[in-house]
Computed example of a mutant assay.
Amino acid sequence: MFRHEPSRQAPSLGRPKDLEKRAAILEAAKTLFPVRGYGGVSMDAIAQAAGVSKLTVYSHFQDKDTLFVESVKARCEELLPSDLFVPRFEGPVRAHLTRIAHAFFRLITSDDAIAIHRMMSGQTTGDSHLPRMFWEAGPKRVQEALTTFLQAEHAAGELHVPDCALAASQFFCLLKGECHARLLCGIGEHYTPEQIDRHVDATVDLFLRAYGPGRR
């Protein structure tokens, strides 16, 4: 008689405990970088705030640059989810643009985003790689996502956008407007919900007057 050996299951990758630790590390990074600045945050501080060892931090993120970049990406995804940029042709394009606009405005006027932008402004030109890292992890990725969205809407005939990259830049610049500039200078106040609605609606209307399907 042959005895049946109990089957051995291969260890699974991405165990929940590991994912929880990674999430805790990212959460700590998202909290500490805007408050203390890049130079004021150490991997030891991240580990302590996340409740893990420094070795665990390095096992998930190879260095502080990587952790900073991933924290920027995570914050953008949190407030401006990538699925917002998936074209949906079952409804009016204006509604889709309005949703994107509200999410983008909420992101750029958040306290964390204002703190990070001020941090970037404090970097000496040509003396730091930090602004480029931030740009590529945050603003550039978001703008590329909107560019892809506009290209799809243009191809479907929902919009007429000869230069989608330029139009994406224009859309976001219009949304920033005076409010974002005043917040960066520390002299502005956050808009009320009614003011935000009016600002977003006016921006989307202006954008559609330039790039609506009737412009062909």
Score class of each variant (00 low, 15 high):
Gly39His: 10
Pro87Gln: 05
His60Ile: 00
Asp63Phe: 06
Ala49Ile: 03
Leu80Ala: 10
Glu90Met: 02
Glu90His: 12
Val57Tyr: 12
Gly39Val: 08
Val57Cys: 10
Pro81Lys: 02
Glu78Ile: 00
Met43Ser: 12
Asp63Cys: 12
Lys73Asp: 01
Glu78Ala: 13
Thr56Asp: 01
Phe89Leu: 14
Ala45Thr: 06
Ser59Glu: 07
Val52Gln: 04
Phe68Cys: 02
Val69His: 07
His60Lys: 14
Lys54Cys: 06
Ser53Asn: 06
Pro34Arg: 14
Phe61His: 07
Arg36Phe: 11
Ala49His: 08
Val41Gly: 08
Ser53Phe: 00
Gln62Thr: 14
Glu77Pro: 00
Arg75His: 06
Val41His: 08
Lys64Asn: 06
Phe61Leu: 07
Tyr38Trp: 13
Asp44Pro: 01
Val86Tyr: 02
Val72Ile: 13
Thr56Lys: 01
Ser42Gly: 08
Lys64Asp: 04
Val72Tyr: 00
Leu80Trp: 01
Leu84Thr: 12
Leu67Cys: 05
Pro87His: 04
Ser59Ile: 00
Pro81Leu: 00
Tyr58Pro: 02
Ser71Gly: 06
Ala45Glu: 13
Leu55Asp: 11
Cys76Glu: 06
Phe68Pro: 04
Arg36Thr: 08
Gln48Met: 06
Asp63Tyr: 09
Ser42Phe: 03
Gly40Arg: 09
Thr56Met: 08
Pro81Met: 02
Val72Gly: 00
Leu55Asn: 10
Asp65His: 12
Lys73Trp: 00
Gln62Asp: 13
Glu77Phe: 03
Thr56Gly: 05
Leu79Tyr: 02
Gly37Met: 09
Lys73Arg: 15
Val41Gln: 07
Arg88Leu: 04
Glu90Val: 11
Val86Asp: 12
Tyr38Gly: 10
Leu84Asp: 04
Ile46Asp: 03
Val52Asp: 04
Gln48Asp: 14
Glu70Lys: 12
Phe85Ala: 05
Val35Ser: 15
Ser53Asp: 10
Gln62Phe: 09
Gln48Phe: 05
Arg75Pro: 00
Glu90Lys: 09
Pro92Phe: 07
Ser42Met: 03
Leu80Phe: 07
Asp44Trp: 01
Ile46Asn: 03
Phe68Met: 05
Gly40Trp: 04
Met43Trp: 02
Tyr38Val: 12
Asp44Ala: 12
Ala49Gly: 01
Val41Asp: 04
Gly51Phe: 07
Ala49Asp: 02
